[in-house]
């Protein structure tokens, strides 16, 4: 078997974001050009957005807004901290942040796996629609706000109003929860939840006991308007 080609490098000190994304979008389907390295990102916005091919992209430093936004199939690893909206609306593939993530991480994500090894700021998983998110540290306030589908796993603590106005997404938190948002309640951890959590922790590369987490989900009281729930509207 021929050796895999070396990673192609894009140095953002000299290459424009437009040229980087155009090159990544132009990768032909089924190519053996599979590995790309982005150096000197220095907080630039929209790095590696809208990818569609199952390539590996290593971003060697901190990113600005929306790195890996709307990702499909690609595996994108940020070797540094990620700015706001990392992996927003991710459809599939894997995005890993080696550092912390700013607000709105994986916002409205519809599939795939997002791993944040450090902490995630406010609104992590806001409006999530099927993505799985595993956070090694803690998440900020209003995380999983209006979360519809998918799973948010937090190995640390969660800030205020976790899971406010939740639909059918699942939340697992190992640490303390500052407060739960409207319609979000602690729920019984059943065997299928433990199995799912175990799978996700393993996929994300964390060694943690699923039994040490608490599961949160929707009380489903806001699904149909009722005058007695008006305070929540």
């Amino acid at each position: 078997m021929p050796p895999a080609p070396a990673a192609e490098e894009f140095d953002l000190a000299t290459v424009a974001i437009r040229d980087l994304n155009a090159a990544l979008h132009a990768v032909p389907h089924g190519t053996n050009r599979r590995h790309f390295r982005v150096t000197n990102p220095r907080g630039a916005h929209s790095i590696a957005v809208g990818l569609t091919e199952p390539v590996q992209v290593d971003v060697m430093g901190p990113t600005g807004y929306y790195c890996a936004g709307m990702n499909k199939n690609a595996t994108i690893e940020i070797h540094g901290h990620a700015g706001p909206g990392v992996a927003e609306n991710i459809m599939s593939g894997v995005v890993r942040v080696r550092g912390n993530a700013s607000q709105y991480a994986a916002a409205s994500g519809r599939g795939g796996l997002v791993i944040i090894e450090g902490d995630a700021a406010t609104r992590c998983g806001i409006s999530m629609k099927g993505v799985d998110i595993v956070v090694g540290g803690s998440v900020g306030a209003m995380s999983a706000f209006l979360a519809q589908r998918g799973t948010l796993v937090v190995l640390g603590d969660a800030g205020e109003n976790l899971g406010d106005s939740l639909y059918e997404a699942r939340i697992f938190v190992r640490g303390k929860v500052a407060s739960l948002g409207g319609d979000c309640v602690a729920k019984e951890m059943r065997a299928n939840h433990l199995a799912k959590l175990d799978r996700l922790l393993k996929a994300a590369g964390f060694d943690a006991d699923p039994g040490s987490f608490t599961r949160y989900g929707s009380a489903r009281k806001l699904y149909h308007f009722h005058a007695d729930q008006a305070d929540h509207y």
Partner: peptide, 11 residues
Amino acid sequence: IKIEELREVTD
């Protein structure tokens, strides 16, 4: 920045 992202995604 959001508009730029949408433009980047759609070239």
